[in-house]
Design a protein around this nucleic acid. Structure first.
Lengths: 177, 177
DNA sequence: GGACAATTAGTCAAATTTGATTATTTAATA
DNA sequence: TATTAAATAATCAAATTTGACTAATTGTCC
C-alpha cells in the first residue's frame, strides 16, 4: 500500500499527466525542453519512473497506434494516482533538501595554482555562467507558480556570478602582492 | 591512459590524500564531518571512488595492522595520482555545472492547494532552512580557499530564505483576496 | 525514386549509488 | 566478569542512472 516515495520528480510527472495524458516522447520533449532549466530528468530515467509508477497503479499505460507509425504507449493518471499526487504534494512541499555544489569542490584547491592561472581558468567558468544567464533571460514567462522555479534559477545564477566576481577580484589582489 | 573523469569528488579525495595518507574510515569521518556541508559523498560511494582510483593507479592501497585491531587499507597518492590531481584541477575549475533544485518542483503545483494550507506547509520548510542556516553559522572558519565553499553555502541559504519569504507573503496576499 | 538525414519511440547493458548488514574490537556498566 | 553499547572498517545486494544503441517512419534534396 504505502510505497513511500518522496521523489519530487514523480510528483512532477504525475502533475503533468494530470493536466493531460501523454505518451513518453511528448513527456520527454517537455522535460528536455521547457523544464530543462529546472529539472534534470534524462530519457531513460523518465521511462524508469513511469514504469515504477505504473507498477504502483498511479498511472495506466495503453498502447495506441496512429496511422501506421509504430505503436506507442500512452500514459494517463489513475484515481489512485490522483490520490498519490495530493499526498505527495503535501508530503514533499514542507521538506527542505540541502543543495551541494559539487562543481565548487575544486575551489578548495585554488591555493595550489599560481593566482594568474587560477584567474584564467575561472574566467572561462565565468563566461559559461553568463551564457546560462542569457539563456534564462530568453525563456518566455511561464504562467502561475512555475514562475517561482524560474525565479529561483534567475537569482541563483546572479549569486553564482557575484561570488565568482569576488573570487576573481580576490585573486587579482593576490597576484599583485 | 586517458580515463577522462571530470568528477570533482575524485579531485577532492585526491587532494585530501595529497596532504596526508589515510585509511577509509578517516576519510569518511572527514567527509561526513567537516565537509558534510559542501559535499555529499556517502560511505560506500567513497570506497567505490577509492577503488576506481586505485585501478587507475592514482592511489595505492596497502594493508596495515595496528595492535590487534582488524587490518585496514591505507590509501596514499602515487606520482600518477599527483599528475592526475594537477590535470583534473585545471580541467574541472573552468567548468560550470548547472544546479537543479529538484526539491523546488512541488512549487510548480502550489496553485493546487488552498493558499492557507500552502502557507502552513511552506512554513515547515522555512523552519528547516533556518535550522540549516544556524548550523552553518556554527561551523568554525576554515583556512584558505575552502572558505569559499562555506561562503557559497552561506549565501545560498540566505537566497533560499529570502525567496521563501517572498513566496509566503505572496500567498498571504492571495489568502485575503 | 533513391540516398541520406531527421524525427519518433523507445531499450539495454554497464556504471553508479545506497540502505542495510556484517564482523571485529574496545568501552561502559551492572 | 558477563552483557550491552559504541566505535571501527568495511561489504553487498538491490535500486537507480545513463551513454549508447536499435528500429521504424517521414521528410528532403538530387
Amino acid at each position: 500500500m504505502s510505497e513511500t516515495t518522496t521523489d519530487p520528480r514523480e510528483l512532477l510527472l504525475l502533475g503533468l499527466l494530470r493536466r493531460q495524458e501523454m505518451h513518453g516522447y511528448q513527456l520527454n520533449e517537455f522535460l528536455l525542453g521547457e523544464l530543462s532549466l529546472c529539472a534534470n530528468i534524462k530519457k531513460p530515467t523518465a521511462y524508469y519512473l513511469l514504469k515504477k509508477m505504473a507498477e504502483q497503479g498511479w498511472i495506466a499505460e495503453s498502447v495506441e497506434q496512429e496511422g501506421n507509425r509504430p505503436p506507442r504507449r500512452v500514459y494517463r493518471i489513475t484515481p489512485n494516482g490522483e490520490q498519490a499526487f495530493q499526498q505527495l504534494l503535501r508530503q514533499i512541499l514542507p521538506i527542505y533538501t540541502p543543495t551541494y555544489f559539487e562543481s565548487d569542490l575544486p575551489l578548495a584547491y585554488l591555493d595550489e595554482l599560481p593566482p594568474t592561472e587560477a584567474r584564467h581558468l575561472l574566467k572561462q567558468r565565468y563566461e559559461q555562467l553568463q551564457q546560462a544567464q542569457q539563456a534564462l533571460e530568453q525563456t518566455p514567462p511561464h504562467a502561475g507558480s512555475v514562475q517561482w522555479l524560474i525565479e529561483h534559477q534567475r537569482r541563483h545564477l546572479r549569486l553564482e556570478i557575484e561570488l565568482l566576481e569576488e573570487i576573481l577580484s580576490h585573486l587579482a589582489q593576490e597576484a599583485t602582492i
